[in-house]
């Protein structure tokens, strides 16, 4: 778990970034007729017959920081916990939970809410509450 590192409140950049994420989700619907859930795309890149666009989509995700580097001369600012145990457990839980619950922040969050799916709304409220509770316990209780 990372210690608390202050970050700036960035409503405009965050809104603009969110709109880009939304445009990408709309592109995936317009081109392929699918929701843009990252876990679904990741699993489908291996398991689905129609895997070309999914593999290319993940390639695009990986290319984004490189384009950012080329355009701005530096990688985006980020602070990642280096705890092998913490990040190992976090990765397992995120992968297993999203695969088992059929969706992540993009599949249930962005695309599910945009489809007005009650199932996705329940999933979003559940993972938000558990995430906030986990941060509370790790930062303020332990």
């Amino acid at each position: 778990m990372l210690p608390s590192i202050p970050t700036d409140f960035t409503p405009l950049a965050s809104l603009a970034g969110g709109i880009l994420i939304g445009l990408s989700a709309v592109m995936v619907m317009a081109l392929f007729g699918r929701v843009a859930g990252i876990v679904g795309i990741t699993a489908g890149a291996v398991t689905q017959d129609d895997r070309t666009w999914r593999i290319a989509f993940i390639g695009g995700l990986l290319a984004a920081p490189l384009l950012w580097l080329a355009a701005t001369g530096g990688f985006p600012v980020q602070t990642v916990s280096a705890s092998p145990v913490g990040m190992g457990i976090a990765g397992l839980l995120v992968g297993a939970g999203t695969a088992f619950g059929s969706g992540c922040t993009s599949g249930h969050g962005v695309c599910g809410l945009a489809r007005l799916s009650m199932r996705s709304l329940v999933a979003v409220l559940t993972f938000m509450i558990f995430a906030a509770a986990t941060v509370f316990v790790l930062r303020h209780v332990l």
């Binding site: 913490g86 839980l93 297993a96 939970g97 695969a99 986990t134």
Partner: peptide
């Protein structure tokens, strides 16, 4: 269950 596990992992990492 899946959403809860995902939330815990998201909150850790």
């Amino acid at each position: 269950t899946g959403a809860a596990l995902f939330g815990i992992g998201w909150g850790i990492g």
